[in-house]
Computed example of a mutant assay.
Amino acid sequence: MPMAADEIERLIKEALPDAQVSIQDLAGDGDHYAATVVSSAFAGLPRVRQHQLVYQALQGRMGGELHALALTTRVPDAAPLE
């Protein structure tokens, strides 16, 4: 069963409460998403570790309910999330 975008956002925000999350359904099938996550929790962490934090937030759903997630992570700055 596909995973809803709002469920992905909810899980990420539970794990990273200050996160700004933007999710796009890439194929319209609820199975292939792109997500941009902005959180101060990423400060000083390499990109791989930032992505691992997001994947941990998804509680093992990657590869099952959620087939593909193109992930962009960054630390907050003055630029707004698009």
Rank of each mutant, 00 (worst) to 15 (best):
P17W: 12
Q50V: 04
G63I: 08
A78Y: 10
A70M: 13
G28L: 11
G64H: 14
D31P: 02
P76L: 09
G44R: 09
R74L: 06
V48G: 07
L81A: 15
G44V: 12
V21P: 01
E82L: 12
L71H: 01
D29I: 06
P80K: 06
A43D: 15
V48L: 14
A41F: 06
A41S: 10
Q24S: 13
Q56H: 10
D77E: 13
A57W: 03
Q50C: 14
A70R: 09
G63D: 06
Q20D: 09
D31Y: 08
V54K: 00
A78E: 15
Q52M: 14
T36C: 08
P76Y: 10
L53E: 00
Q20V: 15
G64M: 08
V37R: 05
G63R: 12
A57T: 05
Q52H: 10
Q56K: 12
Q56N: 13
I23H: 04
V38R: 02
D29E: 11
A19V: 07
A34R: 07
V38I: 15
A19S: 11
I23N: 02
Q50L: 02
T73G: 01
L58I: 07
P76F: 11
L16F: 06
S39C: 07
V48T: 13
S22Y: 05
D31R: 15
T72I: 07
H51M: 05
L26G: 04
L16Q: 04
L26H: 07
V75D: 11
A34M: 11
T72A: 06
E65G: 15
T72L: 07
L69F: 01
L71W: 03
Y55P: 02
V54W: 03
I23L: 14
I23E: 01
H51R: 10
D25N: 09
L16N: 02
A57N: 00
A70Q: 12
H32C: 05
L69A: 01
P17I: 12
D77F: 06
R61E: 02
